[in-house]
Write a protein that binds this DNA or RNA. Structure first.
Length: 480
RNA sequence: GGUCUCUUAGUAUAACGGUUAGUACAUCGGGUUUUCAUCCCGACAACGCGGGUUCGACUCCCGCAGAGAUCACCA
């Protein structure tokens, strides 16, 4: 059974830079009908952030990355919080001690720092194994436990990076269990992956340089090494730097609040550093599951480009509206409407959505783009008189045109088809160009920089409101 | 500094050793009865540098340069 895992530490939100190491293992597992495990690596008490686990869970659920084993859902290898697995780590640690492959280290940290400084000063590589204490006490909690390295040339295969080789100079006596009794990541993940039956490890390339040390531990235990899949970093949009919280990387949750659809986020992120070799741009989760392949993961880091995410989001908004209908899209818009929309019913908002949706880049745009559907816009004659098509017309002409339009519409059956016909007749009747007449009516109704097709806007606003706004503008022009 | 990794347009990427180096976003221009957007058409734009191997190199090899990662009782 193929098993992958996403193993975040609850130190805050999931940001764009690391969410891909949840997406890829998910896809790999689902593709093979395997299991995707969520494991919370909360061994660092100092960095623990209250609520972070819930935030991580929410983000994964939002993206549709449901885990088969882990918090909430449980599983055969509970618990899935490292802080609750202390006994397991200690048991495994004792095996290493019994084999003579681990030792308790009584050296005070300031002495260790001295070793490090000395090496730095002499410009020689710092390796703790060169300073192994001669006398080591019996191990007990309160004293760190170190691995006894077996430095030698190690070769391995990484599914993304290819054949790798490392010399003894990078292998050291790493800490397995900290003085607080909890394991380090370096030890805990090996024990967990082994006990949970993880077959494929997906993680960022930053672990590549520690791999030789992990290999030594697998070897000491006689464990089979899982398939290693190193994911290149996602870089910030400007510098070539790994995207991280420190550089202000936005959380996935923040994009959610900004009106990005989970489908678009998943699509964009999956394709950042991976492609199936075709020219397809839009992938559903199901597409990704069938088409994903580890050997087409890019080896170099990719910059995160919000522009393309926005484009993809627009594509997805239209795809959902087109394929699943406006109701399906409407369900996604809760919380994104302007406050003034509060009193209005679903039907009216759906109508608004149906004529505005192809202008949306994000759902958040609803807030600014639909206000005039829910409350009368503030009249500003300057917007009319400064309009490039209207500035050549006198105020008398403007109000006259609006009066003719209002009279005509007064006697029009109020649906899109008849409104369109009436507008066409108005063009003939007045001899004006669409740019002039339609702009004038459009602005009088919305006072917005842009709005949907005129006949649709009128139809949705309704006869009373439309005529009232036209007349208010006429009055405003006359009093100007 | 040691070790490791990476390098095709502004960005993400495609290309059995033989292509006018393809696609998408962005940008610019044009079209669809107003605007904005959608949609359609078009344009601009790339193989980091230097050596080899080869009839032929974006592709293979070696250097160089640049970028990144890592050297914690963090993950």
């Amino acid at each position: 059974m193929l098993k992958t895992r996403f193993a975040p530490s609850p130190t805050g939100y999931i940001h764009i830079g690391n969410v891909r190491s949840a997406i890829y293992p998910y896809l790999i597992a689902k593709q093979a009908n395997g299991k995707f495990i969520l494991r919370i690596e909360d061994t660092d008490q100092a960095r623990y952030v209250e609520g972070a686990t819930e935030l991580i869970e929410d983000t994964l659920k939002w993206l549709g990355l449901d885990w088969d084993e882990g918090p909430i859902v449980g599983g055969p290898d509970e618990p899935y919080f490292q802080s609750e697995r202390k006994a397991i780590y200690h048991e495994w640690a004792k095996k290493l001690i019994a084999m003579g492959r681990a030792y308790a280290d009584p050296t005070p940290s300031d002495v260790i720092q001295g070793y490090r400084d000395k090496c730095n000063a002499e410009k020689i590589p710092y390796l703790y194994r060169n300073f192994r204490p001669t006398a080591t006490p019996e191990w007990h909690e309160g004293i760190p436990l170190r691995f006894k390295a077996d430095p030698k040339v190690r070769v391995w295969h990484d599914e993304v990076m290819g054949d790798m080789e490392a010399g003894p100079e990078v292998q050291d006596d790493i800490i397995l269990i900290k003085a607080d009794g909890l394991p380090t990541y370096n030890f805990a993940h090996i024990v967990d992956d082994a006990t949970m039956g993880v077959t494929h490890i997906c993680r960022g390339v930053e672990y590549l340089s520690s791999t030789p040390n992990y290999l030594a531990i697998y070897e000491a235990f006689g464990l089979e090494v899982p398939k290693l899949i190193s994911l290149p970093h996602i870089l910030g949009p400007t510098g070539g730097k790994k995207l991280g919280k420190r550089d202000g990387a936005k959380s996935v949750d923040e994009y959610r609040k900004d009106g990005i659809l989970p489908e678009a986020m998943l699509n964009y992120l999956a394709c950042l550093g991976w492609n199936d070799g075709t020219e397809e741009e839009i992938y559903t989760k199901e597409d990704l599951i069938t088409k994903f392949s580890v050997d087409r993961i890019q080896t170099s880091g990719a910059r995160f480009d919000e522009t393309k995410l926005l484009w993809q989001n627009g594509q997805w908004i239209r795809k959902i509206a087109g394929e699943q209908g406006i109701d399906a899209l409407y369900e996604r818009t809760a919380g994104f409407w302007p406050e003034s929309a509060e009193p209005y019913g679903d039907d009216y908002k759906k109508q608004v959505l149906s004529i505005i949706y192809d202008r949306l880049k994000t759902l958040k745009d609803l807030k600014t783009m639909t206000t005039y559907f829910f409350s009368d816009p503030e009249i500003d004659i300057e917007i009319i008189t400064n309009n490039k098509f209207l500035k050549k017309l006198s105020e008398e002409e403007l109000s006259e045109l609006l009066q003719i339009a209002a009279d005509k519409l007064e006697n029009t059956v109020w649906d899109e088809e008849n409104l369109q016909a009436a507008l066409n007749q108005l063009l003939e009747q007045t001899g004006k160009k669409p740019a002039e007449l339609f702009s004038l009516i459009r602005i009088s109704l919305s006072y917005a920089p842009f709005s949907p097709a005129l006949h649709q806007t009128l139809a949705v606003l309704g006869k009373n409101i439309s005529l009232a706004r036209l007349r208010k503008t006429i009055t405003a022009i006359e009093n100007h």
